[in-house]
Amino acid sequence: MIATICALLVWAGGWWINVRLANGPQSHRASVRVLIPVIFGITIIIVWELLVWAYDINPVILPAPSSIGGRLIVEGPRLWADFQQTIVKGAMTGYVLGGVAAFGVAILADRSDFLTRGILPVGGFMAALPIVGTAPIFVKWLGSDWESKAAVVAVMVFFPILVNTVAGLKDTTAMQRDLMRTYGAGYWPTLLKLRLPSAMPFIFNGLKIATTLALIGAIVAEFFGSPTVGMGFRISTSFGQLALDMVWAEIIIAALAGSGLYGAITLIEKRVTFWHPSQR
């Protein structure tokens, strides 16, 4: 009873603080804008902890944040090994492979208007398909180690990056292309000096979408077969052992990895496309 009242008070308190901050005179400052969602997040964690404790919620259904935190610390080395297997070897290898392939195909297709008109719709179609379903097929072809996961990721990120790059290369105006013609500039100078820089906002949009897909692909693909290491593997086996706090710990690592990668790409995007209206 007391715990529930405490939880309600914490929630109300956190909300009140945020209302004051959001509607106050300092609300435009960057530090305040970061503080508000952080307060919101902390409030949720405290309320969560109190309610789990108060209602004695079965840890199988919903573990307390404190036990998840404990697991994160205790199982550090194993979490790190899982991270390396899934994120570094599986997701990032596939991301780079798929991205480079997509970029190459986009440049090749760019030389032919015919190819571009064919690839955009077909690529967009393929990007909407549940490619994660090809995971068992890749495991059969490439074995259960990280190579099959990288292959799944490569296929998953290929289409969004391809479609966005092709769309970006198309995006120059006739006037800009005419200007290049008045300089007698051939295909390659026009590509390198005009069309590629101009395509960067689109390319980064594709790269950002791809980071989430890479993570999902690597983890879910491990449900279909994996050596005894890897985040997807750990999630499904911990689940079988009813060690839900370990599951959540892995999810938190995945969340941090996902936000980290997304954030890194966004930072690079800010530097490269500093000139775009959305960044100014």
Binding site: L215, M231, F239, A254, G258, S259
Partner: peptide, 29 residues
Amino acid sequence: RVMDLSVMPWAIVSQTIPILALAPMVIVV
């Protein structure tokens, strides 16, 4: 404005989290 500043950042961040990995778990729970 409060909802905007407190919830929206989490909405954007959540798109980078591979929640899909939890799907089978939710079913069993």
